[in-house]
Design a protein around this nucleic acid. Structure first.
Ligand code: MN
Ligand code: MN
Ligand code: ZN
Ligand code: ZN
Lengths: 142, 142
DNA sequence: TCAACAGTTTAGAATTATTATAATGTATAT
DNA sequence: ATATACATTATAATAATTCTAAACTGTTGA
């Protein structure tokens, strides 16, 4: 939705200095219609396509983690040995396509609210996440 | 339950050669009362404690993955950049203690069966797993 | 029984993702 | 403008994992 948002303001609000790099990352991440999922590698490619200067890998990592800490991004756990991030920071579940390695959001209506009947003494629940792994339906083999 | 099981037989049944190393790994993994969760590192430590000769890291990785492929082990996805494995290969959900980095099995009764109302064309569901992240309840701070 | 073969282990190198370091650069408050 | 704190950068370091190729071992069947 937001076109030409003032990311400078937004960054400042949460105590991050609005540097060129962070503003560009905001644009790439948030200046679009829909939320999306990405790996650090995806993001580096997107950034290098959209930027004249290069941005260092360390900055991408640092900034992604800064955004994550500030609640701008969520990390999604997939068994791959790669980190997936999500610009949709609300609590939601995922499908993971094991053929394409693509993450797909579940809608509220796709899965009922999970009710946890066990509680672990002295611990509080931070999150409840469902991961539904799917793969191509090749049962056409006799 | 199984004491001094014949792991040689078991390995042979699934087409794995019963080598010293694999038999030892079977003992460490399956010759115990309860199933458990481990990282490769955990397992290497356990093996080196129980073995006179050393077992190479490559063999531990290769064998764990061979077992996984045969359905003897399950890999569990946690956001850490480490692989967790589970000797409980049945479908079940987990708590993950973010303080201790410990995985805890959910019982059937802890979480209702998840009903997925969405289906993705041409894809079948391989698994549905819930991960409940918990951490110490330090809300005692004003 | 034992040679031959296929499968396995091994040490070490290579790869990949990630994090640390420390010098340089930049945003901001005065 | 200047000082200062914060950020970025290139590069090195680390950590997990996988690859490689040579040596070794379980199995088969002559
Ligand atoms: Mn992270
Ligand atoms: Mn694996
Ligand atoms: Zn998502
Ligand atoms: Zn488990």
């Amino acid at each position: 939705m937001p076109k030409n948002c003032n990311f400078i303001e937004k960054l400042r609000e949460v105590g991050l200095r609005p540097t060129k790099q962070r503003i560009k990352m905001c644009e790439v991440l948030y200046n679009r219609e829909k939320t999306f999922h990405f790996t650090i590698n995806d993001l580096v490619k997107m950034l290098s396509e959209e930027m004249s200067q290069k941005i260092s890998l360390a900055t991408v990592y640092n900034t992604v983690h800064a955004f994550e800490k500030k609640g701008y991004l969520k990390e999604i756990s997939i068994d791959s040995h790669k980190s997936y991030f999500d610009t949709n920071t609300s609590a939601h579940h995922h499908f993971f396509d094991e053929d394409t390695h693509e993450l797909i959001d579940c809608d509220e209506s796709d899965i009922d609210k999970i009710n946890i009947r066990k509680n672990i003494t002295g611990k509080k629940i931070n999150s409840v996440e469902v991961l539904v792994r799917v793969a191509s339906d090749n049962q056409n083999q006799k």
